[in-house]
Computed example of a mutant assay.
Amino acid sequence: MSPGSTPILLLHGSWHGAWCWTEVIAHLVAYGRPALAVDMAGHGLRARRPECLSVRPFDPEELATEVSPVADVHLDQAADLLVSQIRLLGRGGGVTVVAHSMGGVVLTRAAQRVPELMAHAVYLAAIMPASDSPADRYFARPENADALVLSALRGDPEVTGALRLDLASNDPAYRQQLRDAFYADLAPVVADAALGLLTPDAPVGMMRDTTRLTRGGWGSVPRTYVVCTRDMAIRPALQRVLIAEADAAFPENPTSVVTLDSAHAPFLSRPRELAEIVGGLG
């Protein structure tokens, strides 16, 4: 396939689902690019919610301690699913895969496994881990010290097996923190609509599993990183660290870098601009 007809697969990040790409797909299709958004393992239609969320009266202690129904989802399952989705869309040919946030960890594992199916790997404000490096290593770095997500988690991931958000909270300060973390450049009414579509649990296993990268695998795939300059979930300084590590490990295949003046979710706040970036790649 020529670059202009290479299909584009869109993979969301933690707590989100295929729904978040709707506006981007509309613009990509208008540009003549075939595009498909998919749900990541443990998310979207594959999500499972803690039982405590439907019990009344609500018990905040249960929210903090109930083991997640997606606690057994790990990077292997997520990568297997993504590879099957790539094969289906590409019909044996190359696919441009765009991954947001924690979806970048899944893209990295898939690209290492099947580099021949990757026309281009695009990381959108995403974790692009170095070889044998877990995602949670990055969130603790000083470059991400003022990010807003970790302090919004509820419960101990060691107990629940998940990164859990209290999406039903009526605490105005907490809800504002979630808006600021993900959707700071959206109107509050739109941000609240997006929060209503999130799933509360993201499997913690994906954050802790690692992938060994090789030159013939992930290191051979053309890649672009889209830095979101107002991101309060994965700070721009940390995004630059990820790029620097990749380029140090694979200098013969440097990362192409694009900046976007947006918060963490440009698929909602800047869908046309994001589609123009992605649509211009192979």
Rank of each mutant, 00 (worst) to 15 (best):
R33Y: 10
R33P: 11
P34I: 00
P34A: 14
A35T: 05
A35V: 04
L36F: 06
A37Y: 07
A37C: 05
V38W: 10
D39Q: 02
D39L: 02
M40G: 14
M40A: 15
G42W: 06
G42R: 05
H43Q: 14
H43V: 01
G44V: 05
R46H: 11
A47C: 09
A47W: 04
A47F: 08
R48D: 09
R48W: 00
R49F: 07
R49C: 00
E51F: 00
C52G: 09
C52F: 13
C52Y: 13
C52S: 13
S54F: 09
S54N: 13
V55I: 14
R56N: 11
R56I: 07
R56W: 15
R56T: 14
R56A: 12
P57Q: 05
P57E: 12
P57W: 05
F58C: 01
F58H: 10
F58I: 02
F58D: 03
D59I: 13
D59T: 12
D59F: 03
P60K: 00
P60Y: 04
P60A: 02
P60R: 07
E61S: 08
E61R: 11
E62A: 15
A64W: 12
T65D: 09
T65W: 08
T65N: 12
T65V: 10
E66M: 06
E66P: 02
E66K: 00
E66N: 08
E66V: 04
E66G: 07
E66H: 09
V67T: 05
S68I: 09
S68C: 07
V70H: 06
V70N: 05
V70D: 10
A71L: 06
A71I: 02
